[in-house]
Amino acid sequence: MGLVNLRKIRRAKQEIGGREVAVVISPRPEQTRLGTTVWQTFKSLLTGMKITISYLFRPSTVVTQQYPENRETLQMFDRYRAQLKLVYDEAGGRLCNCCQICENACPNQSIKIEWTKNPDTKKKELERWIWRMDSCTFCNACVQACPSNSITFGNEFESAVYDRRLLVYTLNDKAGPDAKVWSAIEDPAEREKLMRKMDRYSGPIPLSGTSLPGNPSGKEG
C-alpha cells in the first residue's frame, strides 16, 4: 500500500513559463510495509480525532454568528463583498475621475457612469455613478481594474429591498469634480458650490419602465 510521507511535503520556488512561481512539492506515495501502513493509518486517524475533539471542548472556536441577536456586535470580514462604495479622501474629495475602466471591466454591464465635461476646466465631472446590484455578480473585477483605487466593496450586507428596481441606484450623493480639483480649493464654501446634490434613485431605471411610487422623477433607461 502506498502512503504519502507528509513530512516530505515542502514549499519551493519553481520556474514556470519564465516566471518564479511558489509551489508545494508533494512526494509520490511510497510503498510501505504492512506494519508501517497500519501504524501510520491509526496514527493519522488519531491525529484527526485529536483536532476535532479540541474543537468540541473549546466553544471559542465556534465561528457561527447569531445574527439578528448580535446585530450590534456583529463582526464582519474585510474581504466580504456586500455593496459597492466610492472611496473619498480625507478632505472628502471623491477619488473617482470617471475614466470608465471599471465600466469596461464589468463582465455584465452592471456599471454605468454618466459624466459631463466642464467647459472651463476641460475636466470630466461625474454626473451619476450607477450600479446595478441586481445583475452584479460581485466578481470584484471593477475594484481590481480601477487605476485610482476609487471603488471598493463594503460590509453593509443588509441590502434586501421589496422592489427590485431599488437595486439599481446612484452611488454618489454629490455630482461634481473629482478629488484633484476639489482638494486644490482651500475654502470649504467654494468647494461646496462646485457640487450638486444627487439623489439615489432619480437616475435611469432600466427595468419595467414605470416610475417608482413616491419617486416621480424616475425615468426609463
Binding site: Y55, L56, T64
Partner: peptide, 13 residues
Amino acid sequence: KIAGHFQCRLGPM
C-alpha cells in the same frame, strides 16, 4: 449538537 461543535458550528439554536 455534537456535529456542530466538532465543525466549529453551534448546531440547532
